[in-house]
Amino acid sequence: MVERISHDNSSVTTLRARVERAGRTERPKLVLPEGVATPDDPVRLVLGGRTYHALIEPDFDGVPEIRGAYDNARLARERDGENHLVEWYERGSLDFGRSVHLDVVDPGSLYGVRAPGERATYPSLDGPSDSLADIARDVEDGE
């Protein structure tokens, strides 16, 4: 069983995304390339080696974007708690308008974001079965 997958693994697709200003605020958002799916449920998002949860949603023009990274899926859905995307942006040396790499590890489920030139590894694709994932979602949602 493979425990970690490198960003340059043949199973990982790397796309170009941008860090932009969220409206007129100083908060960052990730503008993803058109064609990236916008699943109904939060996805896992790896930033700086840590895994968070995020929603991929279309903006007013239908372009997919991520406006936050949270500790769990419930917090991502509610946009509650600490937004680790802000922390990641502030720690890095990125400016608004800068390109970043979006690593698609498992479409609709697991993504990673890294600055150009950075290396990254991601959790293995070997995850729980769909039925176990459904149970976990139900528990997380308080059902």
Rank of each mutant, 00 (worst) to 15 (best):
Y52R: 04
A37E: 13
R4N: 01
V139S: 00
A69K: 12
P64R: 01
E118P: 07
R50D: 09
K29V: 09
T121C: 01
N83E: 11
Y70S: 08
L94G: 15
T38A: 03
R18I: 15
A115L: 06
S6L: 03
G92D: 14
E118H: 13
V63E: 11
V105E: 08
G97A: 12
G49N: 04
L75E: 12
I66K: 06
P39R: 09
R44A: 02
T13F: 02
V105T: 12
S129V: 03
V36G: 05
E87P: 08
V12E: 06
V46F: 01
R74G: 04
D40R: 12
G92H: 14
L55G: 04
V31T: 14
S10Q: 07
A76M: 13
G68H: 12
G92E: 15
G48K: 14
P33W: 09
S129I: 01
D40H: 10
D134C: 10
L55P: 04
E143D: 05
V139C: 00
P39I: 09
G117C: 12
V43M: 06
T51A: 11
A120W: 04
R4G: 01
F96Y: 11
V46Y: 01
V104C: 10
N9H: 11
A76Q: 11
L110Y: 10
S131F: 13
R16L: 00
P33H: 10
S11M: 12
P107G: 13
S109F: 12
D106K: 13
R79K: 15
S10K: 08
E143V: 02
T121M: 02
N72G: 00
S109G: 12
D141Q: 09
T51C: 09
D138A: 07
D71M: 08
D61Q: 02
L45D: 03
D141C: 05
A136K: 03
P28I: 12
D103S: 08
S10E: 10
G112M: 04
A136P: 00
G35D: 11
L55F: 02
E34T: 13
P39A: 07
V100W: 05
S109R: 15
L94P: 15
R4M: 03
V43L: 05
R44N: 02
E26S: 02
A115E: 10
P64G: 02
D141I: 02
D134W: 13
V63P: 07
R50M: 04
R18W: 15
A120E: 08
E140C: 03
P128R: 05
W88V: 14
R50G: 02
G97S: 11
G48V: 14
L110D: 07
V2E: 06
A76V: 14
R18H: 15
S129R: 07
R137D: 02
E65I: 06
D8N: 09
L85S: 15
R44W: 00
E20I: 06
A136T: 01
E82C: 01
I135Q: 09
V86H: 10
T51I: 03
V86F: 06
R21C: 04
G49L: 04
L85R: 15
D80K: 14
P64N: 03
A54N: 08
F60K: 11
G108W: 13
R44T: 01
R27E: 15
S131A: 13
L132D: 04
R24T: 06
P39M: 09
S124G: 04
R77V: 14
E65H: 05
D59E: 04
T25D: 03
R137F: 00
V43G: 06
G35V: 13
V104S: 13
